[in-house]
Every structure is written in structure tokens, then in C-alpha cells.
Design a protein around this nucleic acid. Structure first.
Length: 297
DNA sequence: ACTACTCCCTGCCAGC
DNA sequence: TGCTGGCAGGGAGTAG
């Protein structure tokens, strides 16, 4: 589920519940996520206020009043849910309704944040590829999880010149290059496929072919950057894509999956105007790629 | 330094 | 119906 648009959607959903609120209580039901939560995880959260909730690539970053930053990643199947008790409902009653509402998913609700605002924020992750880690803010620049990340694709630093430089001389496919978080941070399997289709570039094309030998951008790089920015912007506007899990923090669904042009559309007609091609599925680096061999060159 | 592959874990679905 | 294999949005670690 979670690529940049989904994570950004989650961030916006969590913001009202968490920003400015204090962790009144933190429950860890299962600490063995991608790696075990630190022993002092709860202690470093409880009593601290969230001063800001940001995002870097697919990571959520909660700044705390203690000077720590809580880093959260959704992995493949992670989601957050915000339960907001009605104003007149007391704490115990709210808890009861929360557990009732969440009963069917309780086995995968690994962490629950009880915020001073009354909101209860749960982290649910069946596959447990998600993760949480707390580091002091000053150490963030050196944080191994974040250190090697490429630029934010919606930021000013991400342009054709930069992308061409990063792809210069790369022996791998364009698809593999774009999914590499060191080249550009936040794209995943879905949005790489969608962006390449919009740019009419084949996922099999050598990454180096979007740059001149000296590393300058060519027309392909320009188109690709435009396509990436557009597809991400469109997806965020639609609340991301919901495939197998929902992801909006109120339990609702993202809508962008209805606008996929190639992803998960094997055998269906290409959606490029004037193209009569058929979407094909291939495997690259062990993952599915969807593309139109007719209009993507 | 690169690139490709394996593995982490659970759930779901098509095919037998 | 019930089992089995394959596949899933990510990415760290490792072997070439």
C-alpha cells in the first residue's frame, strides 16, 4: 500500500489527532515489528508532546517536545487508524467502544497511542514489515534509515538535471532506478509504473538513456520528471491508492486506484489516448511491472 | 562501487 | 470444500 502519496495521506490524517497533543499512554501489544521496538520506546513517548508531524520519503517523522523524533514506516501492510471518541463520551466508555470497533483487527493492532486530545491512534500491520524508531533530533542527519535517501520528488531539488545526474552511467533498468530510494525517495512499484506510462518510457529502458554521456538531461528526463510530479500530485489529491488495505486514518479508502493507467491492468487496453495497445505484465528485479509495449518506448 | 537476489511476515486468491 | 503455490504496495542485508 504505502508509497509517498499514501504516506502523505496518512500524515495529513494523523496531524489533527497528534500535533499539539501529548502521549498520555502508549500500549505496545507486539513490539517485534521489522525490528524490535527499543526497550525505552514507551518511556520516551509517554508524557511528551508532538510538536510537528512531517514526512521524509515513506517515513513519518513526529517531532517530540523532548527533542526526540519518532520515525515510523508502514512497510507493506501498515496502516494507522484514528479513533475519535465523541466529546461527551468518557475515557472508559471511549476505550470500550474503541476495542469494540477494532475487535476484528485486534490481533494486528501492534501499537496504540492514547493522546491527550482523547484521540486513540493505532498502528495495524499484519505483515509486520513496518517499523518505529526514536532518535534525538540532532542525530537525524546521520540516521542510517534516512541518510542515503534521494530528493523528495515533489520538492524543488528534484528536476531533470538531478535525475539525469543520478541515472548517468547506470546499467540497470529505468524501472529499477526509479524504485531505488537513493535516486529519488518515495516512489514504489505502483507509481513508478504509472509515471513511466505517463512519460511513455519503457520500464526496460536502460536508466542511463535519460542522460547524455556527460550526465546532462535529455528530453526523456524532462518528461519523466513531469510525469512523476503529476502522478504523485494527482494521487495525493485522491487520498492515495487502496488495494488490499484501507489506509485513510478514518477507515475510508483512497481513490487513486481507479485512475491507474497500467498498474494491475494486465491484458486490459492501454489508456493512452490514441493507443490501441494492451497492458503487459513482466517481472523486473523480482517485482511485477505493468506497461504498454505499444506506446512506451 | 555497483547490481541482483533473498528474506522478513501474513493474508488472499486462483487453480487443482 | 480444502489445500497449495504464487503473489502482494518495502527495504535491509548479502553475494556476486
Amino acid at each position: 500500500m504505502p508509497e509517498l502519496p499514501e504516506v502523505e495521506t496518512v500524515r495529513r490524517g494523523l496531524q489533527p489527532a497528534m500535533e499539539g497533543a501529548r502521549f498520555a499512554k502508549v500500549d505496545v501489544h507486539r513490539g517485534d515489528l521489522r525490528w524490535p521496538l527499543a526497550k525505552d520506546f514507551v518511556r520516551r513517548l509517554e508524557g511528551k508532546t508532538v510538536t510537528g508531524l512531517g514526512r521524509r520519503a515513506k517515513y513519518l517523522l513526529a517531532d517530540l517536545s523532548s527533542g526526540d523524533v519518532l520515525i515510523m514506516h508502514l512497510g507493506m501492510s501498515g496502516s494507522f487508524h484514528v479513533f475519535r471518541p465523541k466529546q461527551k463520551t468518557g475515557g472508559q466508555a471511549a476505550l470500550g467502544r474503541y476495542y469494540h470497533e477494532r475487535a476484528q483487527h485486534a490481533t494486528h493492532d501492534h501499537v496504540a497511542f492514547h493522546m491527550s486530545s482523547g484521540a486513540i491512534v493505532t498502528f495495524n500491520d499484519p505483515r509486520r514489515f513496518g517499523s518505529m524508531k526514536i532518535v534525538p533530533r540532532p542525530n537525524l542527519d546521520a540516521e542510517p534509515l534516512l541518510r542515503g535517501l534521494g530528493p523528495e520528488p515533489l520538492g524543488n531539488a528534484f528536476d531533470a538535471a538531478m535525475l539525469a545526474r543520478a541515472c548517468r552511467g547506470k546499467k540497470t533498468s529505468l524501472k529499477a532506478a526509479l524504485i531505488d530510494q537513493r535516486v529519488v525517495a518515495g516512489l514504489g512499484n505502483i507509481y513508478v509504473c504509472e509515471a513511466l506510462h505517463r512519460a511513455r518510457l519503457s520500464p526496460k529502458r536502460l536508466a542511463a538513456t535519460i542522460a547524455t554521456p556527460s550526465g546532462a538531461p535529455n528530453e526523456r528526463a524532462e518528461h519523466l520528471v513531469e510525469a512523476i510530479k503529476h502522478v504523485l500530485t494527482d494521487a495525493i489529491r485522491d487520498g492515495g491508492s487502496s488495494l488490499r488495505d484501507h489506509k485513510l486514518t478514518d477507515g475510508g479508502l483512497g481513490m487513486f486506484q481507479h485512475h491507474f493507467r497500467v498498474y494491475d491492468r494486465e491484458g486490459e487496453p492501454c489508456r493512452t489516448e490514441g493507443c490501441s495497445g494492451t497492458v503487459k505484465r513482466i517481472v523486473q528485479n523480482g517485482r511485477s511491472t505493468f506497461y504498454c509495449p505499444t506506446c512506451q518506448k
